[in-house]
Design a protein around this nucleic acid. Structure first.
Length: 509
RNA sequence: GGCCCGUUCGUCUAGCGGUUAGGACAUCGCCCUCUCAAGGCGGAGAUCACGGGUUCGAAUCCCGUACGGGCUACCA
């Protein structure tokens, strides 16, 4: 199996021919993980080749297509940082970019196919077809359409058409060739025996085009040079090539991407967790992380590099480095990557990211966020260093924005009830109350002096203070937390903890 | 049933006839340490699905088999 380099066009198109690729989702749902990756690869390929990235909405299924879904797809793509050169809200010379608004082009194309003898009407009903199919299948072998309407007498055809008899239009597949072969830019030489291809339907009884037909007419008219799409279309490709040829149009280069599976090796679905990219946004993933992770799910820069920015992708994406086998979507690696991007953010940028999460949780108002900007900027690196997802922000910092903390009785008994903890808390309160300045270094100095004086372990004291002040055994760094909380609230919390931390003989036999 | 695609550590992958089969996530251990992280160091983890060839030599090339997936729709 030979592999083709990006620099060499497997179809022999001149290298100077401008690349035009498209992402053509069906608005029957939100932007899916698999679709997003297809979009990313198309976008990256276009950018790398200095070509054009087109967004087309394949909404020929009116039952399941909604405008809300279209909007969600546009939002999802923009969130990922993918911009399209032609498409909805970026009209170009090849519009419309909605298939439902292109119906005229399909009937025009059919007219020419019919005139050139590449399409013919078929009057067989769906029920009869199904029956024959079953029969053929049980008999073994090929179960495609038997082409019986193809040899109908032209006069009879004209008569039945004139009489308004219901019919579909089928492609007259050339019978004089052995196979349909093409060079897939990812998988290499591909070949399908002609005998496995039947005269499939181009236009339905109701006059609407089928996917294999509409898609090709659009790709042809939009001058698409490379069709980069999911593996599930590989078997459709020979059919589509036949349509391109019947249309007398140059056949584009095809590149088929392996599928993305859920953790159990099955098709990605709701039960694997979120499947739409916006759901990942809502769970606290950064777009850079999702883009990076998806880009590497089926493509590699060099097998070593794991952090790939949007710019690097646009500069180095190559079809010949796309893998051939399906990949399992593994959230653990995404989590790690998200953490990398979170830690990379400047305090200022992370403060911006934190704000809406705090506001949504009603810990702050937008006005608070503005007036407490300095405080948030100090808090930012403390938080960003220890979370993997943005939704961890609120539980980690809420103690700073509420009046009093609630302490779990079990934790209180264990930590606040530890031998010496009570004395430690009292001493800490006293030391903090006496401080002139109230910032982390000063607080640290004061508290670090205590354990030795009291003859207790530093950890015991610090954990007791931590629980008293933050309400939990795990928190951002203690001294900074105290500074951010402020003296007044810190002292109040130490006071409150002291009343719990009575040495209870029941908890300490 | 027919046609087509795929198979390298648990996961994502590198590998293009000669490598101790490399990296990353996850995992384990140690260090650092006020908790949790982060970071540093180190470990374990892949008879390259299986069986035949070709070759001095195969994860890499060829043929089968098994398993998984796709298409076989008047879905996309």
């Amino acid at each position: 199996m030979s592999r083709t380099k990006d620099s060499t066009d497997p179809k022999g198109h001149p290298l100077s021919a401008p690349v035009r690729v498209r992402f053509a989702p069906s608005p029957t749902g939100h932007l899916h993980i698999g679709g997003a990756r297809t979009a990313i690869y198309n976008w990256a390929f276009a950018r790398r080749m200095g070509g054009t990235f087109i967004l087309r909405i394949d909404d020929t299924d009116p039952e399941r297509s909604t405008d809300e879904n279209v909007q969600a797809i546009l939002r999802g793509l923009r969130w990922l940082g993918l911009d399209w050169d032609e498409g909805p809200e970026a009209e170009g010379a090849h519009g419309s970019y909605f298939q439902t608004q292109r119906m005229g082009t399909y009937t025009d194309a059919l007219e020419s196919l019919r005139a050139s003898g590449h399409a013919y009407p078929c009057f067989c009903t769906a029920e009869v077809l199904e029956e024959r199919r079953q029969g053929a299948r049980t008999a073994g072998g090929f179960a495609g359409y038997d082409r019986r309407c193809r040899s109908l007498d032209p006069a009879v055809v004209a008569e039945r058409l004139a009489a308004g008899e219901p019919h579909v239009w089928r492609l007259a597949v050339p019978l004089d060739r052995e196979e349909v072969a093409f060079e897939d830019a990812i998988r290499g030489a591909m070949s399908f025996p002609q005998s496995a291809l039947d005269d499939f339907v181009l236009v339905r009884t109701d006059g609407t085009p089928t996917y294999n037909y509409a898609s090709v007419v659009d790709d042809a008219l939009m001058e698409i040079t490379h069709v980069i799409r999911g593996d599930d279309h590989l078997s459709n490709t020979p059919r589509q090539i036949l349509v391109f040829e019947a249309l007398g149009h140059e056949v584009p280069v095809f590149a088929h991407l392996p599928m993305i599976w859920g953790a159990d090796g099955k098709r990605l679905s709701k039960r694997h967790g979120a499947t739409s990219v916006e759901a990942y946004r809502d769970e606290g993933y950064l777009p850079q992380a999702v883009l990076n992770y998806l880009a590497l799910l089926g493509w590699s820069l060099d097998g070593e590099t794991t952090i790939v920015s949007r710019e690097m992708l646009a500069a180095s994406f190559a079809l010949d480095r796309v893998s051939h086998n399906p990949a399992i979507f593994d959230t653990e690696k995404l989590d790690w990557m998200n953490g990398v991007y979170i830690r990379e953010m400047t305090p200022d940028a992370f403060a911006d990211v934190m704000t809406p999460w705090l506001v949504d949780a009603a810990l702050l108002t937008m006005e608070d966020a503005a007036s407490q900007r300095d405080r948030l900027t100090v808090l930012a690196p403390l938080v960003s260093e220890r979370i993997k997802r943005l939704d961890e922000i609120v539980p980690m910092v809420s103690f700073l924005f509420i009046d009093a903390v609630e302490i779990d009785p079990a934790v209180a008994a264990k930590v606040l009830g530890a031998p010496g903890a009570r004395d430690g808390l009292a001493a800490a309160a006293q030391a903090l109350a006496a401080l002139r300045a109230f910032d982390a270094p000063v607080i640290e100095e004061a508290l670090r002096a205590l354990p030795e004086r009291l003859g207790m372990k530093a950890k015991v004291l610090f954990q007791a203070v931590r629980v008293a002040v933050t309400g939990a055994t795990v928190s951002p760094p203690l001294f900074e937390s105290i500074e951010l909380l402020g003296r007044e609230r810190t002292l109040a919390r130490l006071e409150a903890a002291l009343s719990i931390a009575v040495d209870d003989p029941a908890t300490h036999p």
